[in-house]
Amino acid sequence: MKNLSKIFFLIILLSGISFTAQTAEKVEYLKTDWSFKGLFGKFDRASLQRGYQVYTEVCSSCHSMKYLSYRNLAEKGGPEFSLEQAKAIAASFEVKDGPNADGEMFTRPGKLSDKFVMPYENVKAAQAANGGAYPPDMSVLVKARGGGVDYIYSLLQGYEDPPADVSLDDGVYYNKYMYGNKIKMSNQLSDGLVEYSDGTNATVEQMSKDVTTFLMWAAEPHLEARHKMGFKAIVYLIILTTLVYFSMKKIWSRVETKI
């Protein structure tokens, strides 16, 4: 057993090294309690639904979410809108389809199977409309940023007047959490910007939290299933390991050598 503790020490050491290696340039991010962290972490359903509202009303005018479909909104482990709600949401968007029998492209109301409608035709159009900066697709944004949810949550609240020695060009804003502190997205959130249907007070902090939760789900739609299965798998493995351990002791007792 002494050797086993050595093995585990080595494993912890190695993962520790890779961990510090990747978080070397970390700034102190704002902290909040995320319901989806931890062994039993789950999404806060109401927060996901509010987060979707913030996304559609604020973010979606510039940021696409090309890997999500409207059906996802009604799926288990997500915002879990009812099927009718999700259908209504889908139908509220105009989707370009075609060509039809006459060879013409046409628009129709969205269906559950449609991907989220993109704000721009293509990347160039998005850049042209945003001063040359492409608003990144938000589908996996949380996983594509070193600080993850804490980074996004902080960034949304990180707008400040620039220090005296920093001069900003037109269309560039100061954000204390942004890499290099200069960001081309202006401050988007202000208190009361959206009106939550569940009566939650729409403070900047609340909206940041809700929309970040929504983005986390968008990036990891199977997070709840993963946590659930992980717990079962590990409990199963621990029980099996214990049984095998005692079988091993029994078998090796025949040769009377320590193992």
Binding site: I11, A233, I234, L237, L240, M248, I259
Partner: peptide, 15 residues
């Protein structure tokens, strides 16, 4: 059985 036991320990870390 000894390899099996060690493998299971390894699988816990893996999981």
């Amino acid at each position: 059985i000894k390899d099996g036991f060690a493998l299971l320990m390894f699988m816990i870390v893996f999981a």
